[in-house]
Design a protein around this nucleic acid. Structure first.
Lengths: 332, 332
DNA sequence: ACCGCAAATGTAACCGGTTACATTGCTTTT
DNA sequence: AAAAGCAATGTAACCGGTTACATTTGCGGT
């Protein structure tokens, strides 16, 4: 193994000089620097970063806890994380937790065992909340996308309530009164906020909330498919459906068409996320565009600020309602 | 920082004894072991894994080079990698390379700088081929999914040629004679193999290959959309289109319908990959199912075998043609 | 010629584990 | 009772960098 001592020997200088020539070139003489660089080249020397990291007690790795990368939205967020981390010289340790809290805690503890410097959590769960982490809240973490109400760390989120309200208002403006909703996982604050926004819009329009129009889901196409089945089977079926994710909207549209109904003629469908496929569905999907990659980029920037001891503020990202052909005036 | 010396002091033993009590409990006396464990507990001691790794010169991290995680197929492969790696006690350092060779080489060199033990490359490019890596081929790597013809390492792949032939034969059996093809990136061996399979099927059926029916693409929905535009504008337009990825098939179907044509009545469409959305498109997509997660799992298993000095053989994964409603008998 | 100061370089401790080797103390063998 | 063997534990070197501190060198000022 070519280490710094070999290089020092080759260059005829001390290890300290080699280290300095590489790290702070300005404090060694030009002659020496050149000798060292030549020796480095000749020996094919690459610093053992494990040693560097061990010495500096920094790994320059970030742990990312993601419920599932199979979800297109999260894939985009991770893309942003990856890109930003790379620019700043950090690596990304990916953890696909499938919502398993034990796994999240286990992965988060890579920070306590010094295999990573910080955590980006994309789900509303504090992996350090366990009593195994007495100093829990102090560990470097950013909670992004789906955030805890009482997050013990900085957060990056969307104003989900406002966004859901805007979608619902759009449907109401089209004349819809019976608007179904396919929700996300039961205990998610994101689901709760979007439902609140939906209710806000209905209340403002003087429409009563009908519990039968609210279906649980889990953000997958299959869940959307099944929920749509329930909704279209209702005696008074909805004329529009707001889905909390595009993936569910795609599943829902599939089931609606299977039943011989048309989108948007018989039922308007709106989604949330603006995934890549949203403009290629038939008809193209009305949805809320979230700046997924920016979520990732911002989370990384904030986490690195935390790691560098800077104070960071919570961030609310912007959204846009994209009106496409899947929503149309109510035909009733 | 609570380190092993603190624990040793607390327990009234030497650091060596603490290390042994934790790593090889059977070679210390029960009394001592208990004392040590109590001290560990009391001090809240967690071994600094950076030190352990530094000492053992193993990081237990694997680098995964993926062209883009925004692609649903790769997201599934990564899921498999992640899961298998975790089971075996390895972490996954993700690198979204966007096909940038410099970036792939840079990330792969995490192995030479000892920040990772091995590489899983999901693209047909050898990041170690550069002359910066004289010992290139010897570095632990697995090439999966899209593999190099002369890969300097073990590979996991599909028989793309046979699979493409099977899809094309299916279309021919439905009576189609003018079958368009939307290809992948120009220089990809995967694209070449699938095209060969397509040609095999045509030749066997006595159909001449018409160059105008072959459109380049890049696996994205947009590419499929644009390629379909070209194909339906042809004087003699195809009655079926085989797309090298489901994402392109989804884009193509979108453009076909936009032109007022019906799938499969006017044009049959087949894809490749069987992504989650493939069964929710309208109509559901005929495609080749690839065991994406298994690709990832096998790649990890093979890489760890390599790291442990075992000999490993190349692997060919199975595929299945899934016949859904997007392909139907030719109407001409 | 001598002193002082700064620049350049060298020496060695250090990070926190692991482990080869040394030491201690006790049991078994002849 | 002495020798041999073994289990339990301690001592300290080691991994490969970084860096505080020490030392040397060179130059300008008097």
């Amino acid at each position: 193994m070519t280490n710094i001592r070999k290089v020092a020997e080759l260059a005829g200088v001390s290890v300290a000089t080699v280290s300095r020539a590489l790290k702070s070139p300005d404090i060694v003489s030009p002659t020496t620097r050149e000798k060292v660089l030549k020796a480095v080249d000749q020996a094919g020397y690459k610093p053992n970063l494990m040693a560097v990291q061990f010495r500096s007690q920094r790994t320059y790795n970030l742990v990312v806890l993601v419920p599932t990368i199979a979800n297109t939205f999260f894939a985009r967020v991770i893309s942003g994380i990856q890109e930003a981390a790379q620019e700043r010289g950090y690596g990304v340790l990916l953890c696909n937790t499938l919502g398993d809290e034990a796994m999240e805690t286990q992965y988060a503890s890579l920070v306590t065992t010094r295999q990573a410097d910080g955590v980006i959590q994309l789900r509303a769960f504090n992996p350090f909340s366990d009593n195994a982490f007495p100093a829990g809240a102090a560990l470097p973490m950013i909670n992004a996308c789906e955030v805890l109400d009482d997050a013990p760390c900085p957060t990056v989120k969307l104003d989900n309530r406002a966004a859901a309200r805007e979608v619902t208002e759009h449907l109401i403006a089209l004349g819809h009164r019976r608007i179904g909703m396919i929700k996300g996982p039961r205990r998610s604050p994101l689901t709760r906020d979007r439902q609140l926004g939906y209710q806000d819009a209905l209340s403002a329009a003087g429409i009563a909330v009908d519990e039968r129009l609210l279906c649980p889901g889990d953000f997958t196409p299959l869940a959307g498919y099944q929920a749509a089945e329930t909704l279209i089977a209702l005696a008074e079926r909805p004329t529009a459906i707001f889905c909390e994710s595009d993936e569910m909207a795609i599943g829902a549209m599939s089931r609606i068409k299977e039943a011989g109904l048309r989108v948007p003629d018989d039922i308007s469908v709106a989604g949330f996320d603006d995934i890549a496929f949203a403009s290629y569905t038939d008809p193209p999907l009305t949805t809320i565009a979230q700046p997924a990659e920016a979520f990732g980029r911002e989370a990384v920037a904030m986490l690195i600020d935390v790691l560098e001891g800077q104070k960071v503020d919570n961030l609310v990202m912007p959204y846009t309602l994209l009106t496409r052909a899947s929503t149309a005036p109510c035909q009733l």
